[in-house]
Design a protein around this nucleic acid. Structure first.
Length: 276
DNA sequence: CGTCCTGTTCCACG
DNA sequence: CCGTGGAACAGGAC
């Protein structure tokens, strides 16, 4: 599942493949991927050049000339890859951006959950899900005081809180399990009851784990690949996610898997303390 | 064949 | 109106 480190890796690998290219034609093989007006998407993009690609949390922002931005969310299995225009279409290729140089950027998504929106550059926060997001890990705004205050107000458990993106945006199921294990906080702990000291530690671990995962080009556990088709490297560093039933590397207790907020959640019943 | 899985959005509820 | 929780989405794995 692409979370912030994987999306950042896609951004970095995609830029050299498409920056400076001019779109010649757009094909929507599965139109539902585009959640803004389809005619506009098909008619306004030809002639526009890709200037750059930005990112906020798990959203990619493909910057185009003409003051346009394609906001792209990969959801669970979305991928981009560059091919020749003539390459046979994969069963799960859903959108194609054909360039004037004969290459094409294709969006491939087995689950078809990913979404793209065409918006005016600068209006992203108003017109897409980005508006509801909290601050990013490692951003200047994501401070101890902000995090302590925000968690105090929450009535949910810490796992649901970190997954919901409204306080800190970019973590998904994998990194939430990892940061909670590293901070020794039980996923069902009440977000508002975690001590000040542990919240500070949690913020540091979120920042550290996200930074390290970006450095290692993300995590490939199911099907995630970057724009060059390469796997990530952080899966080797995972201590709990995908390791249910195995011994905790710190204390040897068997890691347990439960469901929290409808998500599979792996944790160490011995190391991770419940605050309630 | 039925169930599970999964990020975000949408909707219902209190 | 707001926070919360659960369904919906889609299809491959088991």
């Amino acid at each position: 599942m692409p979370e912030m480190p994987e999306v950042e890796t896609v951004r970095r690998t995609l830029i050299p493949l498409v920056k400076g290219k001019t779109i010649k034609k757009v094909t929507l093989w599965f139109p539902k991927i585009v959640s803004t007006d389809h005619d506009k998407f098909i008619n306004e993009l030809p002639g526009k050049k890709i200037i750059d690609i930005d990112r906020y949390a798990k959203f990619l922002l493909i910057r185009l000339t003409g003051n346009l931005t394609i906001v792209s969310h990969l959801r669970m299995e979305g991928k981009y890859h560059l091919t020749s225009v003539n390459a046979p279409k994969d069963k799960h290729d859903h959108v194609q951006f054909e360039f004037t140089d004969g290459t094409a950027l294709r969006y491939n998504d087995v689950r078809k959950f990913g979404r793209m929106q065409l918006v005016l550059t600068g209006t992203e926060r108003m017109t897409t899900g980005i508006g509801k997001l909290g601050y990013e890990p490692n951003s200047a705004e994501f401070t101890d005081d902000y995090f302590i205050d925000s968690l105090k107000r929450k009535k949910k458990n810490i796992k649901s809180t970190l997954l919901d993106q409204t306080i800190v945006a970019g973590l998904g199921n994998i990194y939430v399990d990892e940061v909670l294990w590293r901070t020794k906080i039980h996923p069902l702990s009440a977000a508002s009851k975690i001590s000040r000291k542990k919240v500070i530690e949690l913020r540091k671990n979120i920042n550290d784990i996200i930074s390290l995962a970006i450095k290692m080009h993300g995590t490939t556990v199911h099907t995630y690949l970057d724009a060059n088709g390469h796997s990530g490297g952080f899966q080797k560093e995972l201590k709990v996610y995908g390791h249910a039933g195995e011994p905790c590397v710190v204390c040897g207790t068997t890691l347990k898997k439960i469901k929290v907020a409808g998500r599979g959640t792996t944790f160490c019943p011995h190391c991770q303390v419940i605050y309630k």
